[in-house]
Computed example of a mutant assay.
Amino acid sequence: MTQTKKINPLLKAALEFGPLILFFVVFMRLRDKTVAIGGTEYSGFIVATLVFIPVLILSTLALWRLTGKLAPMQIATLVLVIVFGGLSVWLNDPRFFKMKPTLIYLLFAGALGISLALRRNWLQLVMSEALPMSAEGWRILTQRLVGLFLGLALANEVVWRSMSETAWVNFKTFGLPAVMVVFFVLNAKLFERHALPKDE
């Protein structure tokens, strides 16, 4: 098993959230403009996507190099960003990139749902070292996460299909991470109730 190396938390946060913040900054600066590249005009959204993809690749590689490990969520996110972000840039169509969060959340909800059906809690296998809980606690948390991911997938579809690009970028950059933070704060009692004794 590859041993995970510890790195500075601020550096880790910068590598994880830096690409998203850069996407937001580039979009906000270019959202009302078009940029000509190779004789083709691209919107600010497409240019921000074009910047985001290589930066995310580099930051993910840096995380892997520094920690010796990547979470399944990070790998899946990187693959979908490359595929759907690449399609958006290649076809000059922002819809593909906007659908990416929906697919990510559906993928995670499906994977967690299958693990529950098979009685093999994959979330527990991945996170048990960081968050020691009983099997019952992991089962409850996994059920709640399935519901959360399905809700986020639906919310993303509603926002990108019915609101402006700026509203979707704000939702993606600030709304989705905030929902995840609130979710885990609201589940603090679950973590306390099902925490394993220290000697275990």
Score class of each variant (00 low, 15 high):
138 W>V: 00
126 V>I: 14
13 A>V: 09
92 N>E: 07
158 V>M: 04
89 V>D: 05
99 M>W: 09
188 A>I: 13
83 V>Y: 01
161 R>W: 02
96 F>R: 05
44 G>T: 08
11 L>I: 14
129 E>K: 13
192 E>F: 10
106 L>Y: 07
145 L>A: 12
25 V>E: 02
155 A>N: 03
55 V>P: 03
18 G>W: 12
39 G>H: 09
1 M>E: 14
174 F>Y: 08
140 I>R: 14
64 W>M: 13
18 G>F: 06
135 A>P: 01
98 K>W: 01
175 G>H: 11
134 S>R: 04
174 F>R: 03
145 L>W: 05
33 K>E: 14
44 G>Y: 00
22 L>F: 02
116 L>S: 08
183 F>Q: 08
55 V>D: 03
63 L>C: 09
17 F>D: 01
166 T>D: 08
12 K>E: 15
105 Y>T: 11
180 M>Q: 00
182 V>T: 10
49 T>E: 04
191 F>H: 09
165 E>R: 00
41 E>F: 10
195 A>D: 02
6 K>R: 14
4 T>W: 00
103 L>F: 14
95 R>P: 02
41 E>V: 14
103 L>S: 05
81 V>R: 05
104 I>A: 05
192 E>W: 01
54 P>Q: 07
172 K>N: 11
157 E>K: 00
67 T>A: 11
120 R>E: 09
119 R>L: 06
40 T>P: 05
109 A>F: 09
8 N>C: 10
70 L>R: 08
191 F>N: 03
153 A>K: 04
156 N>M: 05
182 V>Y: 01
128 S>G: 09
92 N>K: 06
138 W>R: 03
150 L>I: 13
196 L>H: 05
130 A>D: 12
178 A>H: 05
113 G>Q: 06
54 P>T: 11
94 P>F: 09
46 I>G: 11
114 I>H: 01
86 G>N: 05
26 V>I: 15
183 F>S: 10
120 R>A: 14
71 A>I: 01
107 L>V: 04
47 V>P: 04
84 F>P: 01
142 T>K: 02
79 V>A: 14
79 V>W: 00
123 L>P: 00
161 R>N: 14
117 A>D: 03
54 P>L: 12
79 V>M: 09
4 T>I: 15
125 L>Y: 04
180 M>Y: 14
139 R>G: 13
98 K>D: 11
41 E>C: 06
181 V>R: 00
153 A>Q: 03
124 Q>D: 04
97 F>S: 08
112 L>Y: 10
20 L>V: 15
135 A>G: 08
190 L>W: 01
44 G>C: 07
94 P>Y: 08
73 M>L: 15
144 R>C: 12
139 R>T: 15
145 L>Q: 09
24 F>R: 01
188 A>C: 00
164 S>T: 15
65 R>N: 11
111 A>T: 15
106 L>C: 10
34 T>H: 08
154 L>T: 12
39 G>S: 15
29 R>T: 14
